[in-house]
Each structure stands twice: as structure tokens, then as C-alpha cells.
């Protein structure tokens, strides 16, 4: 049996001494799209940041394997070079740095070689068209003065340019109007391929009308308490997270 792309094993994570993740297990194979749902504060972003290597979060137990190798001791840039990607729930501003300059550096850093200007430009405009973004966007400073929706599109644009093997998208859908949601979902569908694994973090079933996950998991109080298919998302939508809370308490 071939090695799984991405495995999270019994992951425990603390922030400032408080345990947030209390033993998370999850396996993502190439070509699979997993949705991770859960109420506010359940630890979704904590998981996403930990997977990418944010030093703010302390792993106290467990392993995270990318293509069979534990990446937990690696800095974020090394994880990126090995194929990890995180679309941020709250992307930060980098004042004075143009989107296109940033993207070029990112492509160079993760691919290990400088793309030719022509290739880079062609690819950039192609991906922007896919996400229905105006070209002038690439001249703006990274996330500075971006609307919520523009920030999300910009994250997906980075995903498109970097073409990672394992992508974690932390609420790529929240705050989007219906057109933006369609554009982002469309982008995700086009980018997801047989080689890529994806973990899509979301609150709402809404985006799942456009992007169909193979698996749905529910994170509650630092643990995955339910896993299933699309029907689980629908059930959640109908009954709300209180239902899970009730179940988890039992």
C-alpha cells in the first residue's frame, strides 16, 4: 500500500499553557478533499497554524507526517518547501510590499528557482482570471486595505501560484458574498487534483454546495468527535452545533 500523503497522529497542542487540541487524528490521501467543521473556539485555527509551524503553538504530543516524514520540528519555510500550504483565516498586512513582488518571491522560495518574468506573468494573470480578480490587484500592497473578500481571494491566488501538495484552507469562505464564494469555490475545484490533498476548514455547509468533500469531520473541544460524508454536514446544518455538544457531553 502506498504511503499516505498526510497523517495527523494523536496531536496535542497548547497555547500559553492551556491545552487546545486534545488528541487529533486525521489522514488525508492525495486527491482527497476533507472538510473540517466545528464551532467557534473549537481549535480549528489552532490546528491549521500548528500544521504550518506557527511557533506560538506548542505541540505537547503526537506526530504530523507529510509523505512519511515528521515535519513538526521543521520551520514553516521548510514545510512550505516540502509542499505544505495554509490559507489564513486572518491574513496579515505586509505594508509596502506589492502582491506581485511577494508572489514572485514566494514562488522562487518554494520552487527553489526564480521563474522567468514571462512565465511568471502569464501564470499570474491566468490564475487571477480564474479567480475573477482584476489585474490591477497585483500592484496593491499585500492585504493592505483589502476587503474581507479580497483577502480570501488573495489567499487562494497564492494557493494557485504555489501549487502545494497538501493545502489547509482556514475558512476560505467566511465573509464572502455569493459571487466571491462562487469564484473561490470554483478556484478550489480547479486547483484540487489527483496529486493534492486538501483540508477545508469551515463553519458552514454553504461552501460545500460548491465544493464537494469526500469526508466531513467535526472538531469539538479539541477532538474530532464525528466523521462521515456530506450527510454529516447537512445534519449539522439542520441541527446546529448544539447537537454535537449534546452528543459529546454524553
Amino acid at each position: 500500500m502506498p504511503q499516505p500523503l498526510f497523517v495527523i497522529e494523536d496531536l496535542h497542542v497548547s497555547v500559553e499553557g492551556k491545552e487546545i487540541l486534545k488528541g487529533v487524528n486525521l489522514t488525508v490521501e492525495r486527491g482527497q478533499l476533507h472538510a473540517l467543521m466545528g464551532p467557534n473556539g473549537s481549535g480549528k485555527s489552532t490546528l491549521a497554524h500548528t500544521l504550518m509551524g506557527n511557533p506560538h503553538f506548542q505541540v505537547t504530543q503526537g506526530r504530523v507526517l507529510l509523505k512519511g516524514e515528521d515535519i513538526l520540528s521543521l520551520p514553516p519555510d521548510e514545510r512550505a518547501r516540502r509542499g505544505m500550504f495554509l490559507a489564513f483565516q486572518y491574513p496579515v498586512e505586509i505594508p509596502g510590499v506589492k502582491v506581485r513582488h511577494f508572489l514572485r518571491m514566494a514562488v522562487k522560495a518554494s520552487k527553489g528557482e526564480e521563474p522567468s518574468v514571462t512565465d511568471f506573468r502569464r501564470q499570474l494573470f491566468e490564475k487571477m482570471a480564474l479567480l475573477e480578480m482584476d489585474r490591477s490587484f497585483s500592484e496593491r500592497y499585500v492585504n493592505e486595505g483589502f476587503s474581507g473578500g479580497e483577502k480570501k481571494r488573495n489567499e487562494i491566488l497564492q494557493l494557485a501560484m504555489l501549487q502545494p501538495e497538501m493545502a489547509v484552507l482556514d475558512e476560505a469562505d467566511s465573509g464572502l458574498d455569493i459571487d466571491a464564494l462562487r469564484a473561490v469555490a470554483n478556484g478550489i475545484n480547479k486547483l484540487a487534483g489527483p496529486q493534492m490533498g486538501m483540508l477545508l476548514i469551515t463553519h458552514y455547509q454553504r461552501i460545500l454546495n460548491y465544493v464537494e468533500p469526500h469526508f466531513v469531520h467535526v472538531l469539538f473541544d479539541g477532538r474530532i468527535v464525528r466523521s462521515g460524508g456530506m450527510e454529516l454536514a447537512q445534519e449539522l446544518e439542520a441541527k446546529g452545533y448544539d447537537w454535537i455538544a449534546g452528543e459529546a457531553a454524553v
Partner: peptide
């Protein structure tokens, strides 16, 4: 530190 993390998550060294 969040800016550094954001950029490093895109492959840039510290």
C-alpha cells in the same frame, strides 16, 4: 511575529 510566520509559510526564510 505573525507577519514573519505568514511570509515563512510561503517558503521565505526568516
Amino acid at each position: 511575529s505573525e507577519q514573519l510566520f505568514y511570509l515563512m509559510s510561503r517558503g521565505l526564510s526568516e
